[in-house]
């Protein structure tokens, strides 16, 4: 499993609160205190109490082109509200560096997202989630949810988990992400 990704605060609910970080660097959003350490990212609460969850990952070995993985990943983050309208996204170069992928690949994804109205470029300031970014179409939302569920169910079956046990694990994970992460 790739250890590359953008991480955002799970309790994102307005434009001020965004962190993105990777396996080497954690970038601070304006107005946020500095982050001291990031040793346990993805495995539990970070030092300082920021429970960061990995939200966007790419797998270069996948058959899906990397630019599309980024495009779809960001689209989903925005549509689900995990990346709030108006928040900055990493620059092409930062994201490319963090994911160690060709910047042209990131640029392609950003360009498509900008054309689709999901991202907006403010001259001299950088790239932001558009204030009026479109929500996930209900069909796509259903499909995404179903596919995720199928992946998890298949994993649980492989492990020989009972249905109740598997559903219990979902509930625990849900609660762990925080109430604000979704509707209960």
């Amino acid at each position: 499993m790739s250890n590359r990704g953008i991480w955002v605060h799970p309790e994102l609910d307005n434009g001020d609160l965004v962190y993105y970080c990777t396996d080497t660097v954690m970038h601070r959003a304006p107005g946020w205190p500095p982050v001291k350490s990031r040793e346990t990212i993805g495995r539990g609460p970070m030092q300082g109490g920021f429970a960061m969850k990995r939200r966007l990952t790419v797998d270069p070995a996948d058959a899906v082109p990397i630019w599309r993985q980024i495009e779809e990943g960001l689209r989903r983050l925005v549509a689900s509200g995990a990346l709030a309208r108006g928040v900055p996204v990493p620059s092409v170069r930062e994201l490319a560096r963090d994911l160690r992928i060709n910047p042209a690949t990131v640029a392609k994804a950003y360009q498509r997202l900008t054309e689709a109205g999901v991202l907006a470029v403010r001259r001299g300031e950088g790239t932001f989630v558009a204030a009026d970014a479109p929500a996930l179409a209900s069909g796509e939302r259903r499909r995404t949810l179903r596919e995720g569920a199928e992946r998890y169910a298949s994993l649980a079956l492989t492990l020989g988990a009972a249905k109740q046990e598997a559903l219990g694990a979902v509930t625990t994970a849900w609660d762990g992400l925080g109430e604000k992460g979704g509707r209960s």
Partner: peptide, 14 residues
């Protein structure tokens, strides 16, 4: 190796 790829990314971006 990681440092090298990051350097390459910077060069490509710039």
């Amino acid at each position: 190796r990681k440092a090298l790829f990051e350097e390459l990314v910077d060069e490509l971006a710039e």
